[in-house]
Computed example of a mutant assay.
Amino acid sequence: MDPTRTSTRRLAALTAAAALTVGLVLAGCDSNDTSPPASTSPATSAEVPATAQSGAHNAADVAFAQQMIPHHRQAVVMSQMARSHAGTQDVKDLAEQIEKAQEPEIRTMTGWLKAWSEEVPEGMHGMHDPGGGDPNGTMPGMMSDRQMTELDRASGRTFDTMFLTMMIEHHEGAIDMAEAEKQHGAYGPAKDLADRIIKTQTAEITDMREMLQGN
């Protein structure tokens, strides 16, 4: 046997075996790769714009809060009169329902204005109405000081009729303001509140009209 030819064959066999081993090692490295897929990284960055936009508000949102706060305050005062002036329990119950719904909303809107560094209106007067009532029509449905005085002087069935008639008009004004906020506002929570006001006060108007018919 030719020793040279035998050595050549052995070298070729060793080279092939080495190549096979390297291939297996590389394949093993690929299969154990723990780096995350490329598609997992964009998820977090995609959420950032939505979060950043959640606090955006505009002038319509500010006006909505600045006008609805005194509007709600007047409704609360009217409702508090019913405790001692109303002639029926149905009117007293409705007045309590209105008060419980609107006082927390006043606190919520006050918090928005403070967070936005905007002025919070005082009492039952809007930002553009330093006098009594709302002569400039900036807050639809507001009662004048004279009407509030007359309501406070009434009692029994007379109070019930005046209260229901005034509160229907008051609610209709609030609904108009809420609809304007839904159309022109940008702040999500304010638009949600406007939607809740529309639904709640529309239902209360229906109840009050039924009460008036039976009064």
Rank of each mutant, 00 (worst) to 15 (best):
S31L: 15
D145Y: 07
E105A: 03
A43K: 05
G156W: 03
A82H: 03
P104G: 09
G137D: 13
S39I: 10
E122A: 14
E99Y: 11
M142H: 04
M148Q: 09
E99C: 01
T161S: 12
T161V: 13
G123A: 03
P70N: 07
T149R: 09
Q74R: 11
Q53H: 00
A60G: 06
P49T: 06
A60N: 07
G133H: 02
K100T: 11
G132D: 13
K114V: 11
A101V: 07
A101R: 11
G156N: 11
E47C: 04
A82Y: 05
A75L: 00
G132K: 06
F64Q: 07
E96V: 07
A95S: 14
E47P: 00
R157W: 01
G55R: 01
A101S: 14
P49G: 08
G141K: 05
A63H: 02
S35M: 13
E118P: 06
T161R: 15
M162E: 13
D30Y: 02
F159R: 04
A101C: 04
S31E: 02
T44E: 10
S35P: 00
G123R: 06
W112Y: 11
W112Q: 05
G137Q: 07
V62M: 09
A86T: 12
T149W: 06
R73G: 03
S117M: 07
A86Q: 08
S39Y: 12
A38V: 14
A56K: 06
P104E: 05
R73N: 13
W112T: 04
Q67E: 13
T158L: 01
G141H: 09
E119V: 11
P70T: 04
E99T: 14
V48I: 15
D61P: 10
T40R: 09
G55N: 06
Q66K: 05
E103G: 03
Q147H: 08
Q147P: 05
R83T: 13
E122L: 14
D61S: 10
